[in-house]
């Protein structure tokens, strides 16, 4: 058997040098990899290659707003750090606050969640929705690309052997929209893997014309779904019963859930209808919820049946 080594670099430069000369498994929080490679109790987890533990690289931590007003999140920021931050966009905070168990959220990192490229991952949904980019760094320099391009397909990412995800940059936030929506369906409230998660955002121009509309769905196919053609069906026109149906039907063609397809398709349709029909009523709350009980008594009843 080939010798398995373990590197614990203390600086980013050191980590990049290791990546440059050797093919290693990059271990950030460990919340996926340690389960994937777990062994019997008291036995050392079995990795097929050498491992580099980057959990403590300070250069990849911290959240800030850059000079362009974009939110920059270090790849090693944990779910709890993201959920508790006041400057992270709302959709991503929601997703981070509902990932797994409390203890796991202090280990799981945003970089790891993207690199894992699971179609059920919690963070890619909001990142697709807000046109987020990843910054990839190697000894030869850096490049940036959309998260939605970086995740190629199920468990497959566009990361070169010598590159490390160093940063996630999010250009949009909830302030760019009039109404926002995020809902995760799991088998229980906490500690659950997504059965289906839908995120939406909408901005009106004058005269009820939709200026911007975005829609992403997780756990509905081999990767997170977002489709601009579907969104363009609504952008530039008014929200009408007919338009809502067109969006719903078009998005139904985009998603491809394998298990429980009827449940997943119907839930997605209902959530889209709920959101758009509520936007039309111009409720006071920017956050559109799935539950009627969240509505202030006396506010107008929804126009369309949900």
């Amino acid at each position: 058997m080939e010798k398995i080594d373990c590197y614990i670099p203390e600086t980013l430069q050191e980590a990049l040098e290791i990546l440059h000369r050797e093919d290693v498994i990059i271990l950030a929080g460990g919340s996926d990899l340690m389960v994937f490679h777990k062994n019997e109790p008291s036995l050392i987890p079995e990795f097929e290659k050498s491992v580099m533990i980057i959990r403590n690289l300070n250069e990849l931590k911290g959240i800030r707003i850059n000079s362009n007003g974009e939110c920059e999140i270090g790849a090693l920021c944990t779910s709890n750090e993201i959920a508790e931050s006041t400057i992270v966009p709302w959709h991503l905070r929601q997703a981070a606050s509902r990932m797994g168990a409390v203890g796991l959220r202090n280990s799981a990192t945003i970089g790891g969640n993207i690199a894992n490229a699971s179609p059920k991952g919690d963070m890619p949904g909001p990142l697709y929705l807000l046109d987020a980019r990843v910054k990839l760094t190697s000894l030869n320099g850096s490049r940036e690309m959309l998260v939605s391009d970086f995740i190629i397909k199920f468990k497959s990412i566009d990361l070169k052997k010598d590159e490390l995800i160093t940063k996630i940059i999010i250009p949009y936030s909830e302030r760019d929209f009039d109404y926002i929506f995020w809902h995760k369906v799991g088998t229980r409230k906490s500690n659950a893997i997504s059965k289906i998660t839908v995120g939406m955002a909408l901005k009106f121009a004058e005269d009820e014309i939709v200026k911007d509309f975005r829609l992403s769905a997780t756990s509905t196919g081999a990767k997170t779904n977002r489709n601009r053609d579907v969104e363009n069906l609504l952008i530039g026109s008014k929200i009408t019963e007919e338009n809502i149906s067109r969006v719903i039907e078009a998005f139904d063609q985009v998603i491809s859930p394998r298990a429980m397809p009827v449940f997943r398709r119907e839930s997605t349709k209902r959530m889209i209808r709920r959101f758009l029909s509520q936007c039309l009523l111009h409720p006071e709350s920017r956050v559109i919820d799935t539950y009627d009980s969240y509505y202030v008594p006396g506010s107008p009843k929804p126009v369309f049946n949900i």
């Binding site: 373990c6 271990l27 929080g29 460990g30 919340s31 340690m34 389960v35 777990k38 987890p45 491992v51 533990i53 709890n80 168990a101 409390v102 203890g103 796991l104 202090n106 280990s107």
Partner: peptide
Amino acid sequence: RIVTSCLIP
């Protein structure tokens, strides 16, 4: 901060 020690090398 609370963590699950089974997931941490």
